[in-house]
């Protein structure tokens, strides 16, 4: 039985029986449960993977951990649920998870029609194509007739259809559910090309036997702003997730990191740092938390730059440049609203 069918049936049953699927009060529910229920992907190197101890790590779980640190002061107070491209929104809408942090593109219809709320962007991405270099293809426009592995239920599936149609070339879609399945099919040669977010491609390539034997096409065919999201209708909860992410970005901008945050928290000359870390004013109270919420998130998880370098940066096997994801002050477009 597919996970999606189960989940969808679950959602249907939930709609049937749940006398009161309340949308408000998520923070209270989270506090009562003692953990944040976080939806992540089934596994993309660097972005979400299990360490030797079986615990989830990566660029996306880091957001869940930061939220747990802000609320509970304990990054282990997260209950992870793996979701595929197809199951993720049902999992969120049905209340199985409180938030999603899994390479999910912010789009109009997801934000409105699907009744979800994106709270920000933690990776600015675009869709690319990966192909074995031995095939000697230089441009995505030369892919006429190719078999393309594509994850169902994603934006990339829709972009792919548009790209081939507008360029008047044909292809065979090989639908798959998870990144792992895509990798298996790609390696077996069931498809010539694998297409998804360029970051996901870089991550997948790093896990192949000989990464150098595979190239990414120069074309980036879409905008894929990836970010965490919550259910529509609970703005207080959305605020907590949004500002936890913003705190990590602002911390990098202000030069606050997990190493120096303790010292900075005792007070600095910079009023914004003081507001962020709670030595001045009480921003935490405005989102239902205490003064030290952001301090804990930064202390226990790190600022945005630290997390990026730790899991997917240039020194990791994934080897991604900051590119668009550099701070706005450093040539990128990463920009957090002020803490005031």
């Amino acid at each position: 039985m597919s996970k999606l069918t189960k989940l969808a049936a679950g959602a249907a049953v939930a709609a049937l029986f749940a006398a009161n699927t309340s949308t408000a009060g998520t923070l209270d529910d989270v506090k009562a449960a003692g953990h944040v229920k976080c939806g992540i992907s089934t596994g993309v190197p660097g972005f979400a993977f299990t360490d030797d101890g079986g615990a989830w790590q990566g660029f996306d779980p880091a957001v869940c951990k930061a939220v747990a640190a802000a609320i509970f002061g304990d990054t282990s107070k997260v209950k992870y649920t793996t979701t595929t491209g197809k199951t993720r929104f049902t999992a969120l809408a049905s209340g199985e998870v409180d938030m999603l942090a899994r390479n999910t593109t912010w789009t109009f219809s997801r934000d409105t029609d699907l009744k979800l709320d994106f709270v920000g962007v933690n990776y600015y991405d675009g869709q690319g194509f990966m192909i074995p270099s031995e095939l000697g293809v230089e441009s995505a426009k030369d892919l006429d007739g190719a078999s393309v592995c594509i994850q169902t239920g994603t934006t990339t599936e829709l972009n792919l259809a548009d790209f081939f149609r507008t360029n008047g070339i044909s292809y065979e879609a090989v639908p798959i559910e998870t990144n792992d399945e895509a990798r298996t099919n790609y390696v077996a040669g069931r498809c010539d090309v694998y297409t998804t977010d360029a970051s996901g491609l870089a991550a997948t390539r790093s896990s192949l036997e000989d990464p150098a034997a595979h190239v990414l096409m120069p074309e980036i065919i879409s905008k894929e702003p990836l970010g965490p999201l919550v259910r529509h209708g609970d703005s207080e909860w959305a605020d907590i997730v949004r500002w936890t992410l913003n705190a990590m970005i602002t911390a990098e901008e202000l030069g606050v990191n997990s190493g120096n945050v303790d010292k900075m928290a005792t007070g600095t000359d910079n009023p914004e740092i003081n507001r962020l870390l709670g030595s001045e004013g009480d921003l935490g109270a405005m989102i239902g938390l205490d003064k030290a919420w952001a301090w804990r998130a930064i202390k226990m998880v790190g600022n945005y730059g630290e997390v990026f370098e730790q899991y997917i940066g240039a020194d990791t096997p994934i080897g991604l440049d900051r590119g668009l994801n550099a701070l706005w002050t450093q040539g990128g477009i990463l920009y957090s609203p002020p803490f005031r």
Binding site: S2, A15, F89
Partner: peptide, 30 residues
């Protein structure tokens, strides 16, 4: 309906899968 496990595009994969997911109409599709 186990088709979904290997990506054969049957009812569950089309209307009960991609359509459901892209439109968010779980109840209707199910």
């Amino acid at each position: 309906s186990l088709a979904i496990a290997i990506g054969y595009m049957d009812i569950v994969a089309t209307i009960g899968g991609i359509t459901l997911n892209q439109t968010g109409r779980e109840m209707e599709c199910m």
